[in-house]
Structure formats: C-alpha cells, structure tokens
Design a protein around this nucleic acid. Structure first.
Length: 483
RNA sequence: CGAGGUGUAGCGCAGUUUGGUAGCGCGUUUGGUUCGGGACCAAAAGGUCGCAGGUUCAAAUCCUGUCACCUCGACCA
C-alpha cells in the first residue's frame, strides 16, 4: 500500500473558482466556503467566524509572546477619541480625517464635542503618556493594545480592507532618538520573524518613501509580501515619530541633567489582514492551505466505515494520544458524511495533515497519511505516528515557505527604465534605483498605478540612474501594484 | 468616489423582453441501506423575489430611489 499517491485516484472535486481563471473570485470563494468570515449586516464590516477567529488567535499568540519577551505590556484604551485630541497633530489629522466615523449623540442628547471612533490610537496614547511621564526614570514606556479600529473605507474586501478591523497597535516612548529607532527596527524584526517563520510568508522589509509613510511619522518601515497575482500586500508597519507627537501633545520629562525634554515615540501595527496574506500566499486549486505552525487544526482524523470493527474507537484513541502529545488534532466523527466528502472538506479548509483509518488499515495496524501541500498519500504504521507527524508538520512548514519564496523571487525583476518597470509590475515586483524625488514616484503612480513599496536595508545598488528621471540615484527601491 | 455587472429557498441558478397561482439542482429534516475521493432510495420542510416608495384590477416582471456584493480605476492596513 505504500506510496499510492496516484493523482487519478484522488478524485478531488472542484468546488471553487479556479485560481488562475479569476484570482479575486477564487479568494472570495475560499474565504466564504471555508467559513472563515461572513458579511455583516453593516456596511463594509465582516464577521470573523470560529475558524477565521481561531487563525487570528494563533497569530495573536505568536505575536503577543514576542511582545512580552521584548518587554512590552498590554493595555486597553477607550474606543472614542474627542475631536480636539485628534486635531492636535496636523499631518495625522490630515491623513485620517477623510475616513473617521463620528459619534455625535449620547442617548437623546447631542454631544458638546463629537467623538471619533478610533481609526488608530496615537492621540489617546499621547494624551495618557503626557500624564504618566515626568522623569527619565519613567522611560521607556512600552505598551501594546489588542483592539479593533474603524476606518470609513469606500471599498472593502474581507481581511484586506474592512471598515472595522482587529489589530494590535504598539505605542512606546523613549528618552533618546537612538532608543526609539532601535525599538522601531526591533518590532519590524519581530513582525518579520512571526510572518516568515510562523505564517511561512516571505517578506521584504525596508523603509517607506516619504510619500508612502504614515501620517505624522518621521520614518515608516514596512514588510511587504507578494500575493499569487503578483500584487503587494503591506503586511505590517513600524513607525518612528521622533518628537512630532510629543511636541503636539507636550509629552515632556526631566532628563538626567534636570532639563525638560520631549520623548521619542514609536508605533507599530499588524492586523487581521495577515489572514488575507496567508490565503493569497499559500492557497491553491483545492482551497486554503495553512502553514502547520499557525493552523488551528494541524491533523484531522477521518474514519472510514466508522462503525465497523472498532474503527471509531481506534480513531478516538489516536486522537487523545496525539492531543496529549501537543498536536492540534481533530477527529471528524460526523456520521452523515462520506469519507470522500470529508477529504475534500478538510483540504478546502487547509488542514496540513489528514489521517485516514478504515477496517483494512486496522487489520495491519496502519493508517493513510495525506499531505495537504504535496497531495502525497502513504500508508504508515499507527505506532510510528507520534514520531512521524511532528516531522511531517515541520517539513510542510519549510516546504510552504520555500515554495512561496521561490515564487516571489521569480517575480522580482531588476529594471532600469519605465517600460521595464511597467512590464515587471504587471505580475510581480520591480526592483529599481530611485533618485529620491517625490515627482518620480508621482509620475510612476500616475502612469501605471504602481506605488513604491519600500527601500531594503543594506542592498547592493542595481544601477546608478533613477528608473524614472535618469538622474543619479543611490536608493534601491521596490515598486508594485498594491492591495 | 467614477465606469460596468449581479441581487429570486441555506448555496448555485431559471423565470423579467411581452405584468396574471413561485420553479429547478444541491443542501436541510425523518426513516432505511451505505461508507477507501463530494453515496443511494423514499417521504417532508423551506421564499413578504435585496430594501423603500410609485404605476396597475393585478408587480419577481414596469418606474424612481436606496443598500449590498463582483470586476476595473482613484484613496488606505
């Protein structure tokens, strides 16, 4: 029975729009049919269903433990921000004003001052920090909050852009510019680590251009992932505010020399958009494909002819054993569905490993193990599973990252002129030299709807002339169409 | 927000041109037989036709408005 990975026998049933026919429709089919989300009866909002929320909880867990390990604490700020507070930092207001939702009435009384539903919480963190800091001994303060924010977006798509979304926002204040910069880059690295090692999504990290940076930031850094349609998805950002907000909100402390000084501030965020990134990085013709480390269910056990010869009992026993071993395992004991249906169903839902156990296997003390990433099926002694499954999960994790990275790298093209840039960004990223002028970015965006993504650190130049204007250039930069 | 498209049972659709009893497939429920890649038989339940107005003896069908979703553009995580 070994290696019966015969493609023809694996009559998988097509239930979603093929990925290469209509990527966008494929995405919608996948998120709906896997029951990750549903549309809410509110404009632009989505409901995270149990399976979708479970993925978010896994991401939270991985992020949160690293935040704690790097010395951060969680807090919770109010959802409502007084208008006067939001108006304090000019660039910040300008950036967010168009998409703020307002509360104008409390009960039956109109409010004296309208309240913004937070689009982000810099201003309220600043208001509190200004109360809490007085001495250099109070610094740094490194807080994070898990919450939802609201941005009145004109067009929305589940996970990628919704009016309300779940995220974490870290906000820290420091005594020196050096510390703030170190924090900014440290958190970018934490993000990179979670996304590459846990979500198996390769990312390009680097600094944003001034045009693309956060409203009110001195510098913004991002990680950018490539989706299977070649478009970029900004997967997380980390900002250094310098003293911009501290000056606007008067966050001062007495330094060691006994003089008043402004704090240096950072903020950084990742959102449920990461779930969209997982779907569009790894998904295939059969649906979702979850990296083992983030999958809410790593191993599903499907009994065949469950009522015969103690099959179900054996499956239950195996389930308990694997669970005790620390694997996230599920026994599919639904009694009205055929095994074939369940195979398709769990592949659609992206579970990395499936174990099939039927009467024929039991006679031999074996089971069939199926890999979601390679579609490979093979017979294995049940007694080997405790050793084999963790190895397979690690192998799948590595394999998924390698495939995603190979795909991405194969679609990054070094370009030196506008025609090449246009061609490269039709289905991937362009890597180019840039002079640093805003005008060149504007021209590229106007002509081909392509934006600069970020400027990688420590990169060898790929030329010495700006891709747009041809003048001297010393900045390596990525361009792409973006979500 | 600009251009185009779609809203009819949980899902996928027909019916709209030419107004006249609300249809099909899948799913669901009950019973039985099945179970190694979306099983089969029998019976049953399920819809104010996206929503709000209007025209008409009569509206899924005609008119006006509005909302949601999809595709392509402009803004954003």
């Amino acid at each position: 029975m070994a290696d019966q990975g015969n493609e023809k026998k694996q009559g998988f049933v097509e239930h979603i729009t093929p990925r290469d026919v209509d990527f966008s429709q494929w995405y919608t089919d996948v998120i709906m049919k896997t029951e990750l989300v549903d549309y809410a009866p509110v404009r632009g909002c989505m409901v995270l269903r149990p399976y979708g929320y479970a993925i978010w909880e896994r991401i939270q867990e991985e992020m949160d433990k690293r935040f704690k390990a790097t010395g951060h604490q969680n807090v919770y700020m109010p959802m409502l921000i007084p208008e006067s507070l939001l108006l304090k930092e000019a660039e910040h207001v300008e950036g967010f004003a168009p998409e703020v939702a307002w509360v104008t009435q409390g009960g039956n009384e109109p409010l004296q001052e309208r309240l913004a539903i937070r689009p982000t919480s810099e201003t309220i963190f600043c208001a509190m920090y200004s109360k809490w800091v007085s001495s250099w001994r109070d610094l740094p303060m490194k807080y994070n909050q898990w919450c939802s924010v609201m941005r009145w977006e004109k067009t929305t798509r589940p996970f990628l852009r919704t009016a309300e979304f779940l995220w974490q926002e870290g906000h820290t204040i420091h005594a020196t510019a050096e510390e703030a910069q170190e924090e900014t880059l440290q958190m970018l690295e934490v993000y990179r680590e979670v996304v590459e090692e846990e979500l198996a999504i390769p990312v390009l990290v680097g600094r944003k251009s001034d045009k693309e940076k956060f409203a009110g930031a001195q510098a913004t850094y991002s990680m950018e992932a490539m989706m299977q349609d070649g478009k970029a998805l900004q997967a997380g950002t980390s900002h250094n505010f310098g003293t911009n907000f501290a000056e606007a909100f008067n966050i001062q402390y007495l330094n060691k020399e006994g003089k008043l000084a402004y704090v240096h501030e950072t903020s950084w965020g990742t959102t449920t958009r990461l779930i969209g990134a997982i779907i569009m990085t790894h998904g295939d013709e059969r649906g979702l494909k979850l990296p083992p480390r983030i999958a809410p269910i790593q191993v599903v056990i499907v009994p065949v002819a469950a009522h015969k010869g103690g099959v179900l009992e054996k499956c239950q026993e195996l389930h308990d054993q694997l669970k005790a071993q620390g694997l996230r395992v599920k026994l599919d004991d639904r009694d009205t569905l055929s095994p074939g249906f369940k195979f398709n169903d769990w592949e659609l839902k992206g579970v990395p490993l499936r174990i099939e156990i039927g009467p024929r296997d039991l006679e031999k003390g074996e089971c069939v193990v199926f890999r979601r990433d390679t579609y490979e099926k093979r017979s294995v002694a049940i007694s080997e599973l405790d050793r084999l499954l963790p190895q397979l999960l690690e192998d799948i994790q590595r394999n998924m990252f390698a495939i995603a990275k190979e795909f991405r790298d194969g679609r990054i093209t070094v370009v030196s002129g506008m025609e090449e840039l246009k061609k490269a960004t039709e289905n991937g990223f362009a890597k180019a030299m840039w002079c640093g002028d805003r005008a060149c970015e504007d021209e590229i965006k106007a002509e081909m709807s392509v934006t600069s993504r970020n400027m990688p650190f420590d990169q060898e130049p790929v030329g010495d002339k700006c891709v747009c204007c041809g003048k001297h250039a010393d900045k390596v930069i990525y361009f792409a169409k973006a979500y």
